[in-house]
Design a protein around this nucleic acid. Sequence first.
DNA 1: TTGAAAGCGCTAACAC
DNA 2: GTGTTAGCGCTTTCAA
Lengths: 336, 336
Amino acid sequence: MRKRKTLVDVAAAAGVSKMTASRALRGDKDVSKASIERVRAAAREIGYYGNHLAASLSSSRAELIGVVVPALANVVFPEVMSGVSDALRGTGFQPVFGVTEYDTEKEYEIIRSMLSWRPAGLIITGLEQTEATRKLLSGADIPIVQTMDCDGEPLDACVGFSHSKAGYDIAKALLATGRRRIGYAGCNLDKDTRAAKRRQGFLRALADSGVPLAGEVTASGLSSIQSGRKLAEEILKRYPDLDCIYFSNDDLAAGGICYCLETGMAVPEQIALAGFNGLDIIEGFPGRIATSKTARHAIGQAAAGIILEAVKGNGSTGGQRIILEPTISLGALQKA
Amino acid sequence: MRKRKTLVDVAAAAGVSKMTASRALRGDKDVSKASIERVRAAAREIGYYGNHLAASLSSSRAELIGVVVPALANVVFPEVMSGVSDALRGTGFQPVFGVTEYDTEKEYEIIRSMLSWRPAGLIITGLEQTEATRKLLSGADIPIVQTMDCDGEPLDACVGFSHSKAGYDIAKALLATGRRRIGYAGCNLDKDTRAAKRRQGFLRALADSGVPLAGEVTASGLSSIQSGRKLAEEILKRYPDLDCIYFSNDDLAAGGICYCLETGMAVPEQIALAGFNGLDIIEGFPGRIATSKTARHAIGQAAAGIILEAVKGNGSTGGQRIILEPTISLGALQKA
DNA sequence: TTGAAAGCGCTAACAC
DNA sequence: GTGTTAGCGCTTTCAA
């Protein structure tokens, strides 16, 4: 096909200089109305759509924002991305994404690769990065927002909540309903540091209350409804007297309730189930599963907002920390 | 912070010219082993990580691949993205994403904005774009893959399957189990053209078999488990004699089964439910919901593969069409 | 095998 | 208000 249109083509078509065309297209002030109109018209006519590469190189700032998540299979992260995408809409910034698969080495490579696009900012998941990654990030000199977690020292800004506290709080809430034979079922705890933090908080609350953990099963690999079923089956076979199970998240809890209902157990009367996140799937079983509702979309929006603000301001996030605490939903558990 | 490292810094540190450094870093042949090692070492030492912006501008091809999806709230699309991300891992290409919210005007703007990053290729969802968008795309002169659908004329390459056929086939399968009082419940049919195509195929199969549609309810807005509950409630109140409901997707079907189980209906003995996609959530109710399992991850992988192939080859996808047909899973329905 | 020169398409900074 | 001059940091081309 014919050569791609450049600013020079627009300028020629509009009968002005390249520079005036550039200014008119970007909405710079100090351009006459007449020029603006002619340039815009010319651009539209010849089907010009700019070259961010050249613009970014020239102005040494790209309107690209990197978003790094551990996985896309867990709906939580697409929801964060969705929040980012919403906040970025209409700003001219474009999100670039990378998936680490909960692997810190991959995370390093992805971040490194993203940085070479000279993004305006980076949104990454969690507070735990390798030393090399932290060095890379702090040398990048762009706003960084760590999301989902605030149990630790952020590199720059962060938006999230304390998973440790979330685990602690739900344990206390479950204890307050009278449950005493409480088990724990979790997945991917070696890699998912946030799930591990919730577990820690959960166990601490039990200990604080003098209630021993009545049983525990864990598995490796990503959480899913199927793994939840399996873990529920396993824990209930090994510890049949449980009156409550805390799952590391809602996917597992959903699998758990399916198993329990199928085997004729009354949920939550006979066995209380609790998960984490407040996913849509929980609404399929209204009131039956306790959970901590997290604000994933809002976290994504807030993270993008911080970057936007920094970019438009002095380039610094000011080390902002936004805490969006989950809200506990006990549903029918509290009456039982 | 100190000025960012450039190729000149690396060259200086390695005692070679900028050009040799560039070649060494990119693994060009015709560079001496000695130079390669010195340059690599120098780069590592000073913490150099390149500038894709400059490289892309200079070589007029960016290692960026645009991925445009209608929504992130529907797990199907993150799964496609996940497939893309997997296929791109280690190739140096980075995915950029955009969300259209099923809005063709937004789609146009997003694609336009993406094109100005001069991506190596574009992966977009579906076959229905506005005339303006199609013009934009065909003028872009890069490989384009349309995903998820193949009912229509692709712009370039496409990876997907016929939704119309998928709807037709599941209807035939349900009819074969003996169901005759079949209802349809759907969401977002005005915007989700693929769901609408499935419905069309479904209705056509019923008509072909001389079985009238026994009832229909629809709603606007994105599908979710909650909307599935509501639709199930509505359709069963209006048409209590149904022996089967086909939902526009699995999210709705999952909401439907929750409603049915809660109200004490036997699934699938009393009422058969069918969805679409084969989501993980269906596994929570093993065998109880019929569905067509779609290969989202594989579709994403294949789409990215086509682009990669085209970029490494002559720049053309050759108008490839990859059909990944869904497989029907009837579970316990077939025995009922 | 290496290097020097010439851009890629745009914008910042300064004239006019 | 508009144009001119220099780059941004790399790669392509061509010469050595």
